[in-house]
Each structure stands twice: as structure tokens, then as C-alpha cells.
Design a protein around this nucleic acid. Structure first.
Lengths: 129, 129
DNA sequence: CCTTGACCTTCCCGTTGCTGGAACCCCCAT
DNA sequence: ATGGGGGTTCCAGCAACGGGAAGGTCAAGG
């Protein structure tokens, strides 16, 4: 399989796949002409990576998860630990964003948004309530 | 005012303040010795920037908001437009994160997290339900 | 007067996870 | 032979800074 087909079948851009090889997440073979020769197992890994990334895992998380995935004798507690830590991080982000949203939507509600120069949003940025 | 004092009074790291000058958000004067000489107005701007950044506005947003802030005759609708667009972006992020959180917390709940090798989290990354 | 230590300066590299582009090679069909 | 659509490498850049080196400056203390 060339990179184009793998890209198509994994849903990842070719650039991303090359990058993943660069940082050692995958190690495709090479044809005589220098083209990357992907095995089915490479494709599986790439799909795995795509799903993990879509869940917001960092590349380093992915590296660890991939290693655990390959390690048939691993304990599921390891995986669960990574996932739980990630869950906490996600929750923190959500809370932060919700706070931002509340503050800002309050300001937007206060703002007439017409052609007058008086703007409560700017006032608040100037000195918070 | 030297950068240390401004840093203290604005709550922004000195590095960040220098960066903001670099990209043209502020333009402090200079003393004979080359030290930056900040006016009160620079401090006000930096506080403004700090608050806007804390609300998640991008640097480009901040640049626009700062210009509107300085423009005494501006219409508040301009500000409101920027803020509303930002609100939408925040909401999108929140929704994405909530989806991630739901998916992942379901997986974590399914995972025994013990020393057995069978792990539903990895299974799901392998091939989604 | 000299030193010490806290401050300030510029500059350059590293971060995260890619993305775009240039310059080049390869293969197949016309 | 030529054209188009693969592929390859490397280099640069995004956001928004942070770390750290190498050096200039200033005020206080011995």
C-alpha cells in the first residue's frame, strides 16, 4: 500500500502519516523506489491513532496507548489511568470554557450593539466588575 | 516604570509584555539606557489585554478590540460582533469537549481497570462501536 | 573603588501537531 | 517525449509564548 491509499483508508492526511513516522509512531517498510510500503498492521495503527486523537489524547498519550495496545499482556489499569487523567483534563477545560462563556455572554447581553460608542464589553475589559 | 513593575502591576510575565511589544500591541518609550519606559496608559492597555486573553480572545481579536477601545467614536456593534463570534467559538469547543468526555467516560466506566489484559478502551480505539 | 546581586537588554531555540510549499523523482498512458 | 498524477525530502510557519544564554546597568555594601 502506498501512502495515498493508506491516507484514504485511514482518513488521515498523507502529511500527518509522514509526521507520525517522523516521530516514531509507525515504521512502514520501503519499496525499492523509496516509496513507503504500508502493511495492514500499519493501517490498523493509523486508525487507532486517528480515533485516539479524535478523543483528544495527546501524541504522547497515543504513544503510550499504542504501546499498551501492542503489549498483549498489559494490565487494563494502565490504560484506564491514562484515560482517567485525560478525562480530568477535559473536564477542567470544559469548566474553564463555561466560565468564559458565562462571563462573555453576560457582557454581550448588556451591550446594545448599535451605533453608539458606549460599550459595556469594553468597559468591563477596562476594569472588571 | 520599568518592565518589572509593569509586570507586577499588570499580572503579565515580562516575557509576555516584551512579546506584545514585538507584535505591535503596545509601544512603550525607552530610557536613555535602553530600558523600556512604560506610561500609565501602557499599563492600562496591558491590563486590558490580560483580561481579554483571559476570556479566550485571540491576539488578533485583542488587536481589534484594542483599536476599538482607543477609538472613542467607535460603534459598540463592532465590539459586540467580535464578542459574539468568540462566544460561538467557545460554545463549539464546549460541545466538542462534552462529546469527548461522554464517550471517554463511558469507556472508562466499562473498563475494569484491574490487572487483566482485556480492556474495552483499547477495543474501542481499535474499532469504534 | 570594587563587587555583588538584582534588574534590564537582545537573540535564538523549543513547545504542539501538524500544514503548505519548493524542488525533485517515478511511473504509466498517450 | 510528454503530461499528469503519484511519490520523496527538507524548510518554513502557525499561536502565544517560555527557557536560557550572553551581556549591559544600577544601587547598595564592604
Amino acid at each position: 500500500m502506498n501512502i495515498g491509499e493508506v491516507s484514504h483508508r485511514s482518513g488521515l492526511p498523507a502529511k500527518t502519516i509522514r509526521y507520525y513516522e517522523d516521530i516514531g509512531l509507525i515504521l512502514p517498510l520501503r519499496d525499492a523506489n523509496g516509496y513507503r510500503a504500508f502493511r495492514e498492521s500499519d493501517l490498523h495503527k493509523l486508525r487507532f491513532l486517528g480515533r485516539a486523537r479524535a478523543l483528544g489524547f495527546t501524541i504522547d498519550d497515543c504513544r503510550a496507548l499504542l504501546a499498551l495496545w501492542e503489549d498483549k499482556g498489559r494490565a487494563s489499569s494502565e490504560v484506564r489511568k491514562i484515560a482517567s487523567a485525560h478525562l480530568t483534563a477535559i473536564q477542567t477545560k470544559i469548566t474553564d470554557l463555561q466560565l468564559m462563556h458565562a462571563t462573555l455572554s453576560h457582557l454581550v447581553d448588556c451591550c446594545a450593539g448599535d451605533d453608539r460608542p458606549d460599550c459595556p464589553i469594553l468597559h468591563s475589559l477596562e476594569a472588571p466588575a
